[in-house]
Design a protein around this nucleic acid. Structure first.
Lengths: 343, 343
DNA sequence: GTTAGCACTCTTGGCGGGAGAGTGCCAATA
DNA sequence: TATTGGCACTCTCCCGCCAAGAGTGCTAAC
């Protein structure tokens, strides 16, 4: 479907105004606000046509028009002006990253805050991960009696820990020997190769305890790619008028819980390299029917990567969202590149 | 102040009914619901007296009565029946802890979930901490080039990590030697003693990097005692009718943010050994004026300890809250005792 | 193709009145 | 003297009604 230039312009104005005001747009107010060289009657005719195309709707007979999901889709695909951040905006964002420490986890958190603050919606950022996680190194640290701390470093530069319980008390020197043996046998293995049968000799009981724990940690790591994204700005979003009724608010609060969000992020929809927009019911079901995602990948090609983006009501400032998501994703990618190449 | 037996009974019924129904209680409905051997007129007289004492109020002239903050205080101090969990309830809770893994962090999380689910309010649980944190052990693990992972084990059995950047590339053997040297010099020191001047010989550049990082981690640890409690059940609480208006809901959502809560927990009010109740404006200011805390300490005397409790509107089932908080605190304490004594 | 005009529709906010719940007070009662 | 029945009074809540306002759809004229 393609619209005449004028009809497209009218649709764009409706979408813009509605994003701005959250109230249905009437023909009268449209001609007043934008110096269209047209009467309201003409605009009404065009509106009727747009409605026939399924791009806008009425809440009721005598109300103004609001964009439908298809209308938003047409808008973002064909009408929305390209928007780039001003150098002032870019500087503000960059500045925050330069203020932060060099810890990767902090960058991720910061990216979420920046998006949430700039867009007044929910920001989602996953930790960067390799698709295939390998064991790089493991260490055991004595704690109390028969308990020890296991530290596992993986090839995606992640370090993870948990406590272990051995059948008997182990001191630091035996722990270190044990760790060395296992590093030799299992170093650079993926979780799939990581079974007791993979070992050269049968495992002792203590070794088996550690191997099981490492396996468990690696498994969680692999699943963690989409799990538990950092979520920021829920309150920002709930301030929007669409959530004015407290029922809707509670439902949304439920839906935006990290645990729910993990399955809901429509990662399949993401094209390579640029920002993806998922509007309303286009992809995901259930509580996100009236919400949109603006998403992008970040990270190194072939290296660790993650996803970041923003979630909000379908009435979202898509132009701003795309510009911000794109820029933050670029910044994160660049930071990771420098980290990887050792500055 | 002390009330006659009958007046006390009437106050207790008002509080009970109001906790149950969230609507003002009239003299009529009170005599109907509870077989008082009294007429509504008599109850009205008593109510007028209770109002003079400042224990109950009217929202407006012709409405029923609701407890005031002082009324709740009198109720919990003098009227509230002692409530203990049934063995069924206890079993359900214990069962969940036995299902969980032996990880301390998981217990804390679980305690929060249990409280939130049972009490339909916000549960708060801090991680257990020693008042004085000492360095037990540190390890360095090679990552990429000049980057390494620092793992710090403290005397409160906590393990913490961050990445470091050295001026030059360090391999695992030099890292291990470095770690050993520092363990010898700084082992069992508190953060206060943890300065470069505390070392026997001047530090090399690499050593200084590590020492600074360890200091930083330990400092954060010490502050973390009240910081970032685990918060669970915000949605449970917001479902209560007092938050029906979405403005109130947003304000509360703001107030219940972990970052705000950290300063708000009235730890001073906590007596030794038993459950503390803070009602309304008794202690804390600002957004918690119309909310109450029910709090208890858990953990080992002289060892690591933490705080747990529940936050809800003043109209809270105090009896249930006290019973649940007390029991969960006992369970956590017992689990920690076993962990400490090696089963 | 565009526009002015007009009848029609639907929401919103304000007003009024009746029902319901509860109070306070007073006089009668045990 | 404490209790109680009775009664007038006061609020809130809810429903229906009405007028204003905004917007539409249609038609006829330009």
């Amino acid at each position: 479907m393609s619209l005449s230039e004028r009809r497209g312009r009218i649709l764009a104005f409706i979408v813009d105004d509605f994003i701005d005001s959250a109230a249905p747009i009437g023909s009268q107010s449209l001609v007043e606000r934008h110096a269209l060289g047209l009467s309201s009657a003409t605009v009404r005719n065009e509106m009727a046509a747009l409605e026939d195309e399924g791009l806008i709707t009425h809440p009721h007979t005598s109300a103004g028009r609001i964009p439908s999901h298809r209308g938003y889709r047409y808008y973002v695909s064909s009408l929305m002006p390209e928007r780039n951040l001003s150098s002032q905006e870019k500087f503000t964002i960059l500045h925050q990253f330069h203020q932060a420490s060099g810890q990767l986890e902090e960058w991720v958190q910061l990216a979420a805050s920046v998006l949430a603050n700039n867009l007044h919606n929910v920001a989602l950022v996953t930790q960067p991960r390799l698709l295939e996680v390998r064991l790089k190194h493991l260490q055991l640290v004595e704690l109390l009696d028969n308990r020890a701390l296991l530290v596992v470093v993986t090839t995606d530069s992640g370090a993870h820990q948990r406590t272990l319980e051995f059948p008997a008390t182990m001191h630091q020197d035996s722990l270190s020997r044990l760790a060395n043996r296992l590093n030799g046998e299992f170093g650079n293995k993926t979780v799939a190769e990581f079974t007791p049968r993979g070992a050269a000799a049968p495992l002792t009981e203590s070794e088996a305890v550690v191997v099981a724990a490492v396996r468990d940690l690696l498994l969680r790591e692999e699943q963690a790619a989409v799990e538990a994204p950092v979520v920021e700005g829920v309150r920002e979003m709930l301030r929007q008028p669409e959530f004015g009724h407290s029922d809707r608010m509670l439902d949304t609060l439920e839906a935006v819980d990290e645990r729910r969000l993990r399955d809901a992020i429509p990662s399949g929809a993401m094209g390579e390299g640029d920002v993806a927009i998922v509007i309303g019911d286009e992809n995901h079901a259930g509580p996100y029917q009236d919400m949109s995602f603006v998403l992008a990948r970040y990270g190194l090609p072939g290296g660790a990567s993650g996803m970041l983006g923003v979630l909000g009501p379908t009435r979202m400032a898509y132009g701003d969202a795309v510009a911000n998501v794109r820029y933050v994703s670029d910044v994160l990618t660049e930071l990771m590149r420098r980290l990887h190449e050792g500055e």
